[in-house]
């Protein structure tokens, strides 16, 4: 089974997946807002809409959803554009497992503290600035995934989520720098370096980030 998945990758989601045959006490199960597929605001509605017909059913288009658009100040066309759809697809690929993965990272810190207290103490204070940047980036990255669907205005989503690439890049840069300098035993100068990086001219920042 697993080999099949590694070879061909997972199959595509079908309409059968959206129509779970499961029944509890004879009554059909009503999908909730945190349903399998549609993680956005008003997902329960979309679920019914999607399962009632084909995916491209005209009754599911912006025309029927315009009541919400008009009441919440959103232009109907925004709802149907390919941009938001693509973005939602990307979020939905990682969304369900994001938090679970993040916990492993926190566990790594906690386990280091418990098993190697002196290493933890030296590492976390030696790379204070780098680890702080990683932490802030994690928050800045995870928060939009949870909150971008809570308001319909484009502005809100732009502020929260459209900086995706910018949010994603920084955590890896300090990780790489940290590992490299750690390995080379230059931890004593790390803080000074990071400080210079943060306060220095933009060109210096770009160069050193590009290197690592």
């Amino acid at each position: 089974m697993l080999v099949k998945y590694v070879k061909a990758g997972p199959p595509e989601l079908t309409e059968a997946d959206l129509n779970p045959p499961t029944k509890i006490g004879g009554a059909p199960v009503t999908p909730t807002s945190d349903g399998l597929l549609l993680l956005g605001r008003g997902a329960a509605q979309s679920w019914n809409c999607t399962t009632s017909g084909s995916y491209s059913s005209p009754s599911c288009g912006p025309a029927t959803s315009s009541w919400r658009a008009s009441t919440r100040g959103r232009h109907p066309h925004q709802a149907a554009g390919p941009g938001p759809h693509r973005k939602r697809v990307l979020i939905n690929t990682i969304g369900p497992v994001w938090d679970g993965n993040e916990v492993w990272l926190l566990t790594a810190g906690g386990a280091t503290f418990a098993a190697f207290p002196e290493w933890y103490a030296t590492l976390f204070s030696g790379f204070y600035m780098a680890l702080l940047i990683i932490l802030v980036c994690l928050i800045v990255r995870a928060s939009p995934s949870s909150n971008r669907a809570k308001r319909p205005e484009e502005n809100w989503q732009a502020q929260l989520g459209d900086g995706d690439l910018l949010d994603l890049a920084p955590p890896r840069v300090p990780v790489g720098r940290g590992l490299r300098q750690h390995r080379a035993g230059r931890e004593d100068r790390q803080e000074l370096r990071v400080r210079r990086q943060l306060l220095g001219p933009a060109s210096t920042r770009t160069r050193s980030s590009a290197a690592w």
């Binding site: 956005g40 605001r41 008003g42 995916y55 599911c60 912006p62 554009g81 759809h85 939602r88």
Partner: peptide
């Protein structure tokens, strides 16, 4: 797979 209402 993304219904119009969920595309944000």
């Amino acid at each position: 797979h993304i219904a119009a209402e969920a595309a944000h």
